[in-house]
Design a protein around this nucleic acid. Structure first.
Lengths: 197, 197
DNA sequence: CAACAATGATGTCAACGACAACATTCGGCT
DNA sequence: AGCCGAATGTTGTCGTTGACATCATTGTTG
């Protein structure tokens, strides 16, 4: 544990990802520079290459980690929201929008679809949060709050709404103070529009 | 009209914008290179600088032109949709999503909010299409189809939904074949959820 | 302990955005 | 008509970046 030279960094990949996540949040994806990250980590400009063959690979890894974190945050929100469908849906929506507005650039990376890597890992990572939403909708149908039937389409519309709200707030087209109110309106409208008749 | 040297290009700014719009559509904003555009236009690498002080200025100009085009397309769709609120709303939504999915990168430029230029010109350009949506909603209220009252909030939610659908389709998270159906579902759900009770 | 894989360092290259200095053309004014 | 300044285009340069090739060090495994 001498803090001096250490040719091998130990866990450079993790360090780079953490620094990249921070830089992403502060300055956006465009400004993210592999060389800058290397400087911050105290390694040479080519060292990151061992862990991320090119810039896109780093961005893909960030997106993948983002999906994992999103999934965790959604699960935590749902766990804390009890068992009734309504409160659970509101909690999930609020948690999603908190994530989406606090990590706007990361969200863009996750959904802009400029990915590569055969989409394999990323699709798998994205499946987790999507499954969460889907099972939530099924629960609403099972509890008789939602019209049974076209679950996928309605669920997609709801998710699109949340995603769009995030885009609007992140783009300063909607004042952040309005975020919570609009989110509630959106969820209520969704429930009303899909309510069992 | 000799087609040879011509030190002055004549309307380089327009030429650059057109080339940029095409390149944007084909390769995305990240790949857009001022020098490449200059080569295509047959001018030196520094010539674009006279018209766009830096890269961001070009992107802002593209976004501004995008808002103008979006406004025109929405107006055209509305003009062709008759006078009833329902069909008009469906037509506007379809037109918006056609624009948003055919010019995904442009849409991102328009709404991502990385702008500069004091937002002055851009906000003005964006006001046109937004005003269109707002007056459409008012018409729905006037015709008794929508609950009067919180027009802004409901309108924002609807717009967010359309925006989100575009993001999902553009990110390959939703198959393009589903676009029309989902759009209809979204509009119908909005009308149902905001219907006068 | 000897290969070998994993990981990091150094050097190089082409492309790009930004900038400065200079050249040419256009337009208005006398 | 002719001059002069503004508008527009060119050439040259600089620093940064991503990508790549080559070499150095360390950790591991048979």
């Amino acid at each position: 544990m001498c803090g001096v030279p250490a040719y091998h960094h130990g866990n450079l990949r993790t360090t780079l990802l953490a620094a990249a996540e921070r830089s992403l949040r502060q300055h956006g994806a465009d400004q993210l520079s592999l060389r800058e990250l290397a400087r911050e980590a105290g390694v040479s400009h080519a060292a990151p290459r061992r862990h991320f063959p090119d810039r896109q690979a780093l961005l893909d890894a960030l997106a993948e980690a983002g999906f994992a974190r999103l999934d965790a945050e959604l699960r935590a929100a749902l766990d804390a929201a009890g068992t009734q469908f309504g409160p659970r849906l509101h909690a999930a929506a609020a948690a999603y929008l908190r994530f989406a507005t606090e990590d706007a650039a990361l969200l863009e990376l996750m959904f802009t679809g400029k990915h590569r890597e055969g989409a394999e890992r990323l699709v798998a990572a994205a499946a987790a949060p999507f499954g969460l939403l889907d099972s939530l909708i099924r629960q609403g149908q099972a509890q008789g709050v939602l019209e049974p039937g076209d679950s996928p389409r309605a669920g997609i519309v709801l998710f699109a709404t949340l995603q769009g709200i995030a885009t609007l707030v992140n783009g300063n087209l909607v004042a952040p103070e309005l975020l919570d109110g609009i989110t509630e309106t959106a969820v209520d409208q969704f429930i009303r529009g899909s309510r069992r008749r």
